[in-house]
Design a protein around this nucleic acid. Structure first.
Lengths: 136, 136
DNA sequence: CGAATACTATACCAGGTGAGTATAGTTTTC
DNA sequence: GAAAACTATACTCACCTGGTATAGTATTCG
């Protein structure tokens, strides 16, 4: 029941970009030192965020990263999903191979978990970068 | 962001006991075969539940396990916490040693995560064994 | 052009955790 | 006192997490 370290780093990097201002470009070295994130690991994480369309990368001198959308339109859920993939509280929920009961007789535990999972995702979607940046 | 397999097994074992009726004793072998849980692993999981005061164990012939409280008073949250320990979405949240920023300047990401964590715990506490057993 | 800067891509590695097993012991009942 | 059933500790093995290394690509500036 934990987020990975990578996700935590991603939150902080995204927030830093949001604070810098929309469209503002900040290079990895700066993010790394300001947020105390190992730079190579940060670069790897940033690639997921770029591929997910949350951030844009700019190469070459004066390059770096910027948010691809206004901070208000980037929720924590988007970041979690970009880094970790879709939230699934229990592998059984979407992958019957992992269920030792193989979905026999519509297990009531699993329908409760499906509800909880949806509630959790919804909770993560309630927070966006603009709110966190204190520019509500 | 996942529960462990052990927790899933614990849910199902607890539900089986709830369905069997309050105070009813069911032995590990029966739970194991009915829920398709490896018996030695099940026994290990049951110990956490017993120690957490959720279940009672009975040794000797005709021994087994029973719920220690009425099903309605056992929430999924109790089971999660018994098996995995308290829910903490991010190790940083309670253990500053793991935070690369060491709580510098009251990070807004972490206060949001604290809220989300509380919401998740509350979500797990909304479901109890009586509801799941369909004896609402 | 070409050198410097900064991101991209793949691969690799060590340590920790998850899932499960093994062995030996204790309690209870018949 | 033997059998049933839980307890306790330790162990194993594969996968995942967190992070590093190496090599490559794009962009800008002089």
């Amino acid at each position: 029941m934990q987020l990975t370290q990578a996700t935590d780093y991603a939150f902080r990097a995204a927030l830093l970009l949001a604070m810098a201002g929309e469209g503002e470009i900040v290079d990895a070295q700066t993010i790394s030192s300001r947020e105390k994130i190992p730079i190579r690991f940060l670069l790897k994480i940033m690639r997921s965020l770029v591929q997910a369309g949350i951030m844009k990368s700019h190469r070459g001198i004066n390059g770096g990263f910027s948010l691809a959308r206004p901070p208000r339109e980037i929720a924590l859920l988007d970041i979690v999903e970009a880094v970790e993939g879709a939230i699934r509280i229990n592998r059984c929920l979407l992958d019957p191979d992992y269920c030792s009961k193989h979905w026999a007789s519509h297990c009531p535990v699993h329908s409760a978990l499906a509800n909880i999972q949806a509630a959790i995702a919804s909770e993560f979607s309630r927070y966006n970068l603009a709110d966190l940046a204190g520019k509500a």
